[in-house]
Design a protein around this nucleic acid. Structure first.
Lengths: 209, 209
DNA sequence: AGCAAAGATGACCGCTGGGTCACCTTGACC
DNA sequence: GGTCAAGGTGACCCAGCGGTCATCTTTGCT
């Protein structure tokens, strides 16, 4: 049999370790936010600290890897919902998914809210997400089921806002975000549009790809 | 002349230093959030590190002092607006004030969103704020100018949410929060009420005074 | 002016966290 | 099974943090 690859591929245990690491980091960052330490992550993964840094030269790199994973998942979710019959329901479902994701991940929230913490790949991924969601939003707009002056970026930004609204209640009423999601949706409906001030935002940060 | 006070009052420079300290800390926490360091605060105030700790035994104490100041200011603002003629306008004005305050203060946001970081006095002050805002909200509710299923606590929570929504745009569109405030207000209006899920929240955290 | 006490000071401590590196282990190919 | 480079390891370094304390300075009273 011919060589599997021209250059010998990566070692088997390396791939395994990378997985362990990403999983551990996901957990740690979700629970402790940006304060999660590299040492703790190594321990969770059952690996040595040095190994973490071999895979990800800086903490920021590791964080980005995880953010990209999540953003991708959300963009995928948005894409899949494009096929749904009911545009309004699809949008609500996407938003529910998004808010729940945020509620479960502290680091994600912290990074989303502060572009200065994002490396360019993350910013690009957010921009991509905005594009995907804009498609979803456009459908709802065209069907006159939401007001015509909101964009995909508005929706993405609202995810963070809705979560933040309910965040202080997380301990006592973990489902409180549903209340504020519904409130936001009421604001998005088309019945009684008050003109929104401020230009609709472009992607949160323009990045030269 | 009789003694100025029974027990000799605090020294003059101490009061001055306390002021300097609070001002410096306000600035530092606003800019850098909870990551602001005691050393940096001392430097800003032009004092030695030890002095900071003489006035506030722990970082948490200093932080609380500042939070209390701000929460008080907001509660006062809410109280004053009770006299306004137009309940809807008063509510909008209060919310604008609140969101702007949040936008200007990183630490405030971080603490508001996480009750676990709040010492009991701060929780009490938040509860007080909710009460004050409930009065404002009740008027608007009674005048049928906002839906009848939102409470003062909802409004207070929304402040954080609205700010968070606009936070990623702070660099490029510092006024973007106005857009999302208007969106939220549209959701609060009475025209087309969809029933909100989840019980209306009590004060974010119940505290035994 | 002199004095005692309240207060200011900054060197110091212990600890944690990101990141490095010289050395050891292991997987993959012969 | 032997070989060797890719990869794993953890002791180590350093910076910055919250917090302490013996010591010096200032204030306000007499």
């Amino acid at each position: 049999m011919a060589a599997t690859t021209g250059t010998t591929g990566p070692r088997a245990d390396m791939v395994r370790n990378r997985r362990l690491l990403l999983d551990a980091a996901t957990e740690a960052f979700a629970e402790q936010g940006l304060d999660a330490s590299m040492g703790d992550i190594a321990q969770r993964a059952g690996l040595a600290k040095g190994t973490v840094f071999r895979h990800f030269p800086t903490k920021e790199d590791l964080l980005s890897a995880i953010m990209l994973r999540l953003l991708d998942r959300l963009a995928g979710s948005a894409g899949r919902l494009l096929d749904a019959d009911d545009a309004a329901a699809a949008l609500r479902e996407f938003m529910a998914d998004g808010v729940e994701t945020l509620a479960a991940d502290r680091a994600f929230c912290e990074v989303i809210g502060r572009p200065s913490l994002q490396q360019s790949e993350v910013r690009d991924a957010i921009a991509d997400l905005c594009v995907a969601v804009e498609a979803l939003t456009a459908r709802a707009r065209d069907q006159r089921v939401i007001r015509d002056d909101v964009t995909g970026t508005d929706i993405v930004l609202l995810l963070g806002g809705i979560h933040q609204t309910a965040a202080p209640l997380l301990d006592t009423q973990p489902q409180a975000w549903r209340r504020y999601l519904e409130l936001a949706l009421d604001g998005l409906r088309t019945t009684h549009p008050s003109r929104l001030p401020e230009a609709p935002p472009g992607r949160p940060e323009i990045s030269t790809r």
